[in-house]
Amino acid sequence: MRRIIDLSLTIEDNMPSHKLFQRPVITTHLSHESSKAFNLGVPGDAMTFQTNFIAMLDHVGTHVDAYRHVNPHGATVDEMPLERFVGKAVCFDLRHIPDLGEITRSDMEMAEAKAGVKVDGHIVLLCTGFHKRTYPGLDCVWKNPLLTVEATRWLHERGSMMHGVEGPSTDKPTDNIFAQHRLCRDLGMSHWEWLVNLEELLGKGEFEFFGVPLKFKGGSGSPVRAFAIVAD
Rank of each mutant, 00 (worst) to 15 (best):
V77N: 04
T51R: 12
E79Y: 00
G74P: 13
A89G: 04
D78A: 06
V70T: 11
D65S: 14
M56F: 07
T76C: 15
V86P: 00
D58L: 13
V77E: 04
M80C: 02
D93N: 15
H69M: 14
A66K: 03
H96S: 12
G87E: 05
M80P: 03
Y67W: 14
G61N: 10
M80T: 02
E79P: 05
D65L: 09
H73S: 11
A55W: 09
Q50F: 00
L94S: 06
M56R: 14
R68N: 08
V86E: 13
G61Q: 06
F92Y: 09
P81M: 13
D93I: 03
A75D: 15
D58W: 08
D78E: 10
D58R: 09
T62Q: 07
Q50T: 15
R84L: 15
H96N: 14
G61R: 08
V90Q: 01
K88S: 12
R95T: 07
D93T: 04
L82D: 13
T76M: 06
A89V: 01
P81R: 13
H73N: 15
L57D: 10
D65H: 15
L82K: 11
K88L: 04
P81K: 13
M56Q: 14
R84E: 10
A75L: 15
A66I: 00
F92N: 02
N71T: 09
D58G: 06
G61Y: 05
H59I: 03
V90L: 01
D65P: 01
V86K: 12
G87S: 05
L82G: 15
R84T: 09
A66L: 01
G87D: 02
H69W: 10
G74E: 12
G87F: 07
R68Q: 10
V70W: 14
D78G: 06
L57M: 08
G61D: 08
V90I: 04
V60Y: 00
Q50Y: 00
V60H: 02
T62K: 04
A89Q: 03
P81N: 14
H63G: 11
T76F: 11
D93F: 02
T76E: 09
E83H: 10
R68C: 01
Q50V: 11
V64Q: 08
H73Q: 11
N52M: 08
F92A: 06
E79K: 02
P72E: 10
N52F: 07
V86S: 07
F92C: 02
T51Y: 08
L94V: 08
C91H: 04
V70R: 14
